[in-house]
C-alpha cells in the first residue's frame, strides 16, 4: 500500500512531504516555547480536522457536532483518571467507545430515518448541545464549574499517564496526526473509500450499484467519531481543565471543521494545510490586537477567511497549491 502511494506520487510531492515531515520532527529543538505551543494547537486541529473530513469529505455526511466526540473522549478519560486512577493509555479505549456509541446513535437516527444534509447536521448540533447541558448538571463531573486534572511539576515525562512537558504533548499529537493521515490515505484507496465517495457523489446511484448505504455511512461515522474521541483524550490531558460551557459548543465544532474547509474538504492534505494557515493567523491577530479589547476580532477574521475561500477558492487551498507547485504525478491520480 505505502509502496503504491509512493509509486503514484510525483518526486516533487515526495520531496515536499519529506521536508515537512523532517521539519516537524525536529521543530521542538528549533523553536521557542511560544511557537511550540502554537504548533501543538495547529497539529491538534489538523488531527481532528482529518477525522471530521473523513465523514464529510469522503462519505458526504455533514457533521456540525464533532465537539461532542472531543468532549466525550475528554470527559471519559479525565473522569476515569481523576476518580479511579485509570491511566489514559487504558482510559482511551473507554473514551473511543463513548465517542463511537454516540456517533453510531446519531448516525442510526439520521441514516435509518433518511435525515439528510443540513437536517442531519442539525441533528449532530442538537446532540452536542443537549449532552453539554446534561454534563453541565452532573456534579460528579464538576458540572458547570469544570473538571480539573491534577497538575504537578515533574521533571520526567510519563507517557502512559500523559503527564509531562509540552514537547511530549507535541510528539504525541504529531504521531496522532501522522497516524490519522496514514489511516485516511489507506481508507480512501480501499473499497470502503470508493464506496464512501460513491455515496457522497450520488447516493441513489450508489445504492442501485450495490452499495449498502446504511452500513457504509455507519462505518464512516464510527471511524470519524472514534478518531475524534482520541483527540479528546489528548485535549483533556494537555489542557487539564474541561468546562461544559465551552467543550460541547457548536463554536468548538466549527473550529474543528474550519481548517478542512479552508484547506480543502475531501482532500488528505486539506485539513493539515488549513490548520497551518488558520491557527497561526488567529494567533498573530490575537497578539496584534492584545490589550485593545477587541474580543470578537478572531471570529470576525475567521468569518472573513471562510468568505474569501468560498468566493475565490471554493475547492479549498490545497487543490490550488497542488497545481501551483506542480505536485501532480504524470498519471492522473488522487490528491
Amino acid at each position: 500500500m505505502i509502496a503504491r502511494v509512493i509509486e503514484s506520487a510525483s518526486p516533487r510531492a515526495l520531496a515536499l512531504l519529506a521536508v515537512v515531515t523532517a521539519a516537524l520532527l525536529i521543530a521542538p529543538y528549533l523553536v521557542d516555547s511560544y511557537v511550540l505551543s502554537v504548533l501543538i494547537i495547529v497539529l491538534y486541529f489538523a488531527y481532528v480536522g482529518q477525522a471530521w473530513n473523513l465523514m464529510l469529505g469522503f462519505a458526504g455526511q455533514l457533521s456540525l457536532g464533532h465537539a461532542l466526540f472531543v468532549s466525550l473522549g475528554a470527559y471519559t478519560s479525565a473522569a476515569l483518571f481523576i476518580k479511579f486512577g485509570v491511566p489514559p493509555v487504558i482510559g482511551i479505549f473507554a473514551a473511543i467507545a463513548m465517542a463511537v456509541v454516540a456517533g453510531c446513535l446519531i448516525g442510526y437516527l439520521g441514516f435509518r430515518f433518511s435525515i439528510r444534509g443540513v437536517y442531519f447536521a442539525l441533528l449532530t448540533i442538537a446532540f452536542a448541545e443537549f449532552t453539554g447541558i446534561i454534563v453541565d448538571h452532573i456534579s460528579w463531573l464538576g458540572a458547570s464549574s469544570g473538571l480539573f486534572l491534577p497538575v504537578k511539576n515533574q521533571q520526567s515525562n510519563d507517557l502512559l499517564n500523559l503527564r509531562g512537558s509540552p514537547t511530549m504533548f507535541y510528539y504525541v499529537i504529531l504521531a496522532l496526526t501522522g497516524f490519522a493521515f496514514a489511516l485516511c490515505s489507506w481508507l480512501l484507496n480501499s473499497k470502503l473509500g470508493l464506496y464512501w465517495q460513491a455515496i457522497r457523489e450520488d447516493q441513489e446511484a450508489a445504492e442501485a450499484s450495490g452499495v449498502p448505504l446504511f452500513r457504509y455511512k455507519m462505518i464512516a461515522v464510527a471511524i470519524s467519531s472514534g478518531l475524534t474521541g482520541i483527540g479528546g483524550v489528548w485535549y483533556a490531558f494537555y489542557y487539564n481543565n474541561l468546562f461544559p460551557e465551552t467543550m460541547f459548543k457548536t463554536s468548538q465544532s466549527v473550529e474543528i471543521i474550519l481548517g478542512s474547509v479552508v484547506g480543502g474538504v475531501g482532500t488528505l492534505f486539506g485539513p493539515i494545510l488549513g490548520a497551518f494557515v488558520l491557527t497561526p493567523l488567529g494567533e498573530i491577530l490575537t497578539a496584534a490586537t492584545d490589550g485593545m479589547h477587541l474580543d470578537g476580532v478572531k471570529s470576525f477574521f475567521w468569518g472573513f477567511c471562510v468568505a474569501a475561500i468560498v468566493l475565490f477558492r471554493p475547492q479549498g487551498l490545497w487543490p490550488w497549491i497542488y497545481d501551483v507547485l506542480g505536485l501532480a504525478p504524470k498519471k492522473e491520480g488522487k490528491r
Binding site: Q197, E201, A205, G210, E332
Partner: peptide, 19 residues
C-alpha cells in the same frame, strides 16, 4: 445519467464491480 462526478471512469465502473 447519474455518474459519480469526482471519480474517474474506471472508479465509477469499479463501484459496480465491487458488488
Amino acid at each position: 445519467v447519474r455518474p459519480f462526478n469526482e471519480l474517474t471512469l474506471v472508479e465509477n465502473v469499479a463501484v459496480g464491480a465491487l458488488a
